[in-house]
Structures are given as structure tokens and as C-alpha cells.
Amino acid sequence: MKDKLTKEEVLHVADLARIEVTEEEIEKYQVQLKQLLNDVEKVNDVVGYDDEIMVAPWDDNTTLREDVSGEMLDPKKVVENAPNHTGNYIAVPVVIGENESEGA
């Protein structure tokens, strides 16, 4: 087992997590992240368990909410905590390239 991630691997996970990393940090993470990954690698040695999974120790199934509206925020309150806003809108640097989110 190698004891370091490659620089590219660190850059890849930093991109996934949207964290900028300096050259110095990359070196540090090459070792530290690899150590954590070596830790979790040990689950592959575990045997004897069944296929059922537990997402969370839920006590009940979901109880659905009635479709009745409740209190909403004043738009002024919505923008108050935002670092940047224009009128009632929250503002971000111009999003170029894509018109719509990938997800929806």
C-alpha cells in the first residue's frame, strides 16, 4: 500500500469538496488523507455480515406533513444574512457557461 496520495488525487478531492489548496497543503494532504483512507480500507477485511443496511437508527417510518402553509420570512430577513445582495435578491458572481443547474 502506498503511503501517499498523488498530487492529482488530492486536487481531485479538493475539487469535489470545493476547497482551494496551496502547494504546501497538497503535500500535507497527500500523507494525511492517505492515512484516513488506509483506516477506512479496513472495512474491506470485515466478513460475516448480512446484506441488510441501516441508513440511520430510525424509530419510525416517515409521518407525512399536511399540505398547509406556515410562516415565511420577510425578504429583508432573507438577504440580511447574505454577504451580497441586490434588492430582494441574493447576489453571487456571474455564473457563466451554463444557464441552469446540472441537477434539476
Binding site: 451580497n84 430582494n88 447576489a91 456571474v94
Partner: peptide, 9 residues
Amino acid sequence: HRADKTLLD
């Protein structure tokens, strides 16, 4: 999308 920023609603 505005020229200098993107506004979110």
C-alpha cells in the same frame, strides 16, 4: 443573470 452578477430568488 445580469452582466456583472447572478441574482438568486
